[in-house]
Design a protein around this nucleic acid. Sequence first.
RNA 1: GCGUCUUUAGCUCAGUGGUAGAGCGUUUGCAUGACACGCAAAAGGUCGCAGGUUCGAUCCCUGCAAGACGCACCA
Length: 723
Amino acid sequence: MLEKFNKPYNSKEVEEKIYKSWEDSGYFNPDNLPFSKTKNQKPKTFSIIMPPPNANGSLHLGHALAIGLEDVIIRYKRMRGFKTLWIPGADHAGFETQIVYDKVIEKEGRNRFEIPREKLFQEILDFTNKNKKIMESQVRRLGASCDWKREKFTLDSDIISKTQDAFIDLYQKGMIYRGTRLVHWCPKHQTGFSDLEIDHEERRDSLYYIKYGSIIVATVRPETIFGDTAVAVNPKDKRYKSLIGKEIEVDVVISKLKLKIIADKIVDPQFGTGAVKITPAHDFNDYETWQRHKNEIDGPREVINKYGKMDLVRHFPESIEAKKYEGLKVLEARKLIVEDLVKKGLMEKIDETYQHNIARCYKCNTAIEPKLMSQWFVKMEPLAKPAINAVKAGKIKFIPERFKKIYFHWLKNIRDWNISRQIVWGIQIPAWQCQDCSFWIINKSNPIKCPQCGSGKVEQDKDVFDTWFSSGQWPPLTLGYPDGADYKNFYPTDVMETGWDILFFWVARMIMLGLYRTKKIPFKYVYLHGLVRDQFKQKMSKSKGNVINPIDMVEKYGSDALRMALIIGNTPGTDSAFSEEKIRGYRNFANKIWQASRFVLINLENFDFKSKPKLSAADKKKLNELVKIKKDISKLMESFKFYAASEKIYHYFWHVFCDKIIEEIKPHLIGKDEQSKRSAQYVLSEILKESVKILHPFMPFITEEIYQSLPNKEKELLMIENY
RNA sequence: GCGUCUUUAGCUCAGUGGUAGAGCGUUUGCAUGACACGCAAAAGGUCGCAGGUUCGAUCCCUGCAAGACGCACCA
């Protein structure tokens, strides 16, 4: 019976078997939990929706931390008698997966833009389904006690359908509109983005002072002069006051442009020359300036195409010089136009020390081109207000609290959300356009005929939703909103546990869309864990070669050790330094638990549990101390201080129980005094059982394995013991 | 520009208005009847700097410095 304890703890021999016994027991499903069936009164429920890992690859340490923390919470609540539900999921991760797959097909010498839509979608679906299985098996290896029967994928048919419903509902209420406006466009990935997918990089560039007729303008993008439609000055600027409203003729090398001088507050008289060229097609501020002066000046003239190349000939067909620039990449064109301007004597000066920020694609670092596009936008202000109020009123609490401020700041300055993406991997937008009269029909199925002009030429929008538009509705959708039983029983959920890096991408949007759709908050607590970094606090990345694969660590040291290493000393919201050393330390702890259990079990072999022995004063004290420790730890668990709770039980088990209590008790075990021996045995058995319970949420595998050997166990599984 | 965080032992981090804590690491001893993935000891800190509040500050307030980060952005 106890032979297995004769060698060091071997996680490999235990974990798979234990996980299977949990899964087979059915207790991951709250409906099967024994204590939830008994009473007439409504059972206490507790629910967490797992942030669905991307189904395009393997788990990283961030996932391991998240799953570890969520499992800690779930197991603790389950043992506390809650009807506990944890729903696992998988995210199709639209754009992210698209580019992962781009790399796959690039290696094969193919290009996604040449593959028919349906074929490409099917290929990515096959690829994702394969990876999804790997991801799921990894979640199991981490010990997640989630209900696999309720698992949801963001491309399940009901999720797709309900996501489209949300779009239609928002559209009907005037919260979504089709707008032609400038969007962040990545010339490499050939898609537009929302504001969040953009990184800014500080750079030193040249600031060119160019003669525009009688005045001089300063710009970093001389290649856009072909798209200019005005020059703006500050209305209070005395230097230009007399010129406002006048037209100047500007030599832009390939042609002459007549530009009106307009007055606008946006112009800072202190910067450059105080005169700004206005290029509404290629600059966000210029676009807005044009909006304010629509009646006075021409609108956007696009001189850069979607590939980031010059597109001039169609605007200047009679210009021979235009051909010279045609098709050049922006930076090549810039070099050339600068040369030509200098040659023509139009370059006043070049300031090469100008520091500014430029927008980059967050994925490939390609310079973002503001591009004029017709897209679907969500009006954010009406969604943001209730989301702000829910947090202000304390209905949703952030852990740590300071993220509230960051959240408020973002929501108060929010801009409309571009949800159109020009990729195939995602949920297609349920919008159809009449090819004859351009009328839009918002409908899940093909409307066949245009209701406006009767034309039969109706085509669905090729674009798909920003992946966060669907995952933003994740809590209600996974629970079967609007009429599912789980939605009734488990919504609002209790905790949303995720990384602070997706506070805006995901958490804020879940709150906004959740409130909008269900009129209820989607969750009560937001627990934001920090990012896991390497031992030097550097971000882990493939290029730096400092990535630690969590599953390798599970193989080497066991899931329990990995979980402890991730959770101990990791305070919410603070990035943590992580190293293999740390895991080794907790592997050692696992063995310590193993050996201590062995010692206790050996000494319990002839112990009669039927009658409780009379306890010595010292032994009573030990048990009282344990009660206090347990109380302290529960308090820490309830206040989300898992980093402290785990450390406390670690310290108690090793340095109190093993170092002090066992050593003190040894003489009683081998002594002749039968009563004090029985007292000692009882104390050992009690402390071991309680310790294993307290440790279980953190180190579920080894504790379950030991529990199965306890002569005084009361339940079939430790997992459903009473905490 | 607006904002957030950090600064405590060699490293990574907890923490408290009343003479400083953990883990790892280091040093020394130890094959002790659970465990060398171990045991027993030990060394190691003006709690970033300067003021203030207080009987008392590592903790509260102000300023400064260094570092990390978020948001926005002027050509």
